[in-house]
Structures are given as C-alpha cells and as structure tokens.
C-alpha cells in the first residue's frame, strides 16, 4: 500500500487509535497531518513516531467541533502539503468507557447525547465541509470514519456514545451516495473494544476477558489492529468500495 506523495489528515491523532493510524500511514510514505485537541506533547510524540516510520508529519492543534477551527486546520494542512487525499475522522467527544460507572438510560439527559453527536457527527461534518471542495475539484478522495461495533452489538449500552456513532454511519452512507458520482469514497471502520487507549483504561480486565472469550480471534483489539482496515479503505485497493462499514473486532460482530 503505497501512500507516497499522498496527504492524510487524521483527527484526534495524538493518542491511541489516531496515533496508530497516523503512524501506519506514515509508514507507507504518506505525509500526515496530526490533528490534536490539547496534548501538544502527545502530538509531538505522534509526529516523531510518523517520522521514525519513514513518513512526514505535521501537528495542528484544532478543536474539530468548532467549525472555524476545522477550517483553519484544513488551511494549515493545505499550506504544508498542497492537498488532502485522505481524511480520517477519528476524533470524538471525551468519553469514559467504564461498564460499572456508565450512565444508565434513565440517568442521561439530552445534553449527554448532544455532546456525543457534536463530538462525532458535527465534528465530521465541519471537517468534511472544509476538505470536500478540494477533493471534488480533483474528483478524487477517500474519507474514513471511525465508529464502533457497539452499534451492532451493544455489549455495554453506552447510549449517548453509540447513538452518535450510529448516526455517523448513517451520515457516511448518505455522503457516500452523494459523492460517489463525484469521485469521493466514504467508508467506516467500526472497531470493537480497543485496549489500551486513554478512553478504555477504565474497562477492567474481567470485562476485557469476557469480551475476548466471546471473540473468535480470542482477544480484544489493539490500536494497531484498527490501522490496517483504515489504510485499506483509504487505498486504491478499496477503489470499488464506498458506503461500507468494516467491523474490526476479531469477529465479535459478523455483518
């Protein structure tokens, strides 16, 4: 998978899955724009990891739920790289995955949902609005969304988070239908439980073991496991795929 000469923008790339994706793209020769919200040090580590992998990387701080910030992020990326070939929407609103302390349905108010929808769908929407004109001008581009396998199998009902990700999948499919005739592909990767990440640190060993024991491939995902399908969907190998959701959870969900 050669991404030499290609530019990839990964949101939420300072840590966890985002960092693994950014590093994997860099390893295939891409120039990577490493978006992060606050953790400058972590972003610098991602950049260093990308460079060590043989690619080029450039950090840009931006709160992608802020439309103006998203536009600035894209402008800075274009200044550095000239164009954006691949957008990976990985960022989402802060969330703690803890089966024991999660809010149950009757404990949620609408603001909890709104926060997650903003973090997932609104952020993706703002960024896509900023990136899409360039892709349409070339009739070429790939967008990959990060969702969750919980939309298909809510092993733990993280209502607000999972609802927002389900909306994101719907958003991606509609976008795929609209932009397919214009040369831009949109696909989604839906990981299972990924450990370790900052967000999943609250998921205890027993829970991870329980999921692993029901997973055909007998473990939970690592961040690096997610990168492969993302790169695939962004690559010409997936040139005839759009509007798809790939579950990357060791076979827990089969769809």
């Amino acid at each position: 998978m050669d991404f030499a000469g290609k530019t990839v923008l990964v949101t939420g790339a300072s840590r966890g899955i985002g960092r693994a994706i950014a590093t994997a793209f860099a390893g295939e020769g891409a120039g990577v724009v490493v978006n992060y919200l606050a953790n400058t040090e972590a972003a610098a580590e991602t950049v260093a990891a990308c460079e060590a992998a043989g690619g080029d990387a450039f950090p840009v701080q931006a709160d992608v739920t802020d439309l103006a910030a998203a536009a600035r992020l894209v402008k800075e990326a274009l200044d550095q790289f000239g164009r954006i070939d691949v957008l990976v929407n990985n960022a989402f609103g802060p969330y703690r995955f803890d089966p024991e302390t999660r809010k149950r349905h009757w404990e949620l108010d609408w603001n909890d949902y709104q926060r997650q929808i903003d973090g997932s769908v609104k952020a993706a929407h703002g960024l896509i609005q900023a990136v899409l004109p360039g892709m349409l001008a070339r009739a070429d581009g790939a967008i990959v969304m990060l969702a969750t396998d919980l939309v298909a199998r809510p092993s733990v009902p993280y209502h607000d988070y999972t609802t927002a990700k389900a909306a994101l999948i719907g958003y991606a499919r509609n976008l795929a239908a609209e932009t397919g005739p214009l040369g831009v592909r949109v696909n989604t990767v839906a990981p299972g439980l990924v450990y370790p990440t900052d967000a999943s640190r609250g998921t205890k060993q027993a829970m991870r073991d329980a999921i692993a024991s029901q997973t055909p491939l007998r473990r939970v995902a690592t961040p690096a496991d997610i990168a492969g399908p993302v790169l695939f969907l962004a690559s010409p190998w997936a040139r005839f795929m759009t509007g798809q959701t790939l579950y990357v959870d060791g076979g827990l969900v089969m769809a």
Partner: peptide, 12 residues
C-alpha cells in the same frame, strides 16, 4: 462546475 465533477467520475 458540479456537472464537470460528475463528468469526471463517469469518465473514471
């Protein structure tokens, strides 16, 4: 301009 984009993808 949008038509041009559609034409591009059809040629693709």
């Amino acid at each position: 301009e949008r038509f041009a984009g559609h034409l591009a993808q059809e040629l693709q």
